[in-house]
């Protein structure tokens, strides 16, 4: 009866940002990104890509609760980089990997 609607799993509610960013107050160059309406699909691939970055000291994600449809990605980098830079770099790299795969398949 009080089950949440199924569409809540993938429709970002109005007035909510897809991504929000919170800098860690205690550690330098550390931040947490909250990505709304995403799950392990994106969390895992993003984390694995962040691990490839030599400037990233720590990268991890969690799904706080099965009924809270968001993931938290925590990134801690060296002073050579910043969490924001590492995050965007990871997405760009993944994007290029996908382009490569798409072109390679269509040939």
């Amino acid at each position: 009866m009080n089950a949440p609607d199924r569409y809540e799993r993938f429709v970002v509610p109005e007035g909510t940002k897809k991504v929000s960013y919170e800098r860690d107050t205690k550690i330098m160059n550390a931040a947490a990104f909250t990505v709304e309406r995403e799950d392990h699909t994106i969390g895992n691939i993003l984390r694995m890509q962040l691990h490839r970055d030599p400037n990233v000291l720590f990268a991890g994600y969690k799904l706080p609760h099965p009924l809270q449809y968001k993931i938290l990605v925590r990134i801690h980098t060296t002073s050579q980089s910043s969490p924001m830079q590492a995050y965007n770099q990871a997405i760009n790299d993944l994007d290029r990997e996908l382009d490569h795969m798409k072109n390679a398949f269509e040939v």
Partner: peptide, 19 residues
């Protein structure tokens, strides 16, 4: 690909804040 791009672009003030 579309999913990844959907949360790549972040607002500018984030960037300034972070830098």
């Amino acid at each position: 690909k579309r999913k990844l791009l959907s949360f790549r672009v972040l607002e500018d003030h984030f960037l300034d804040h972070d830098l």
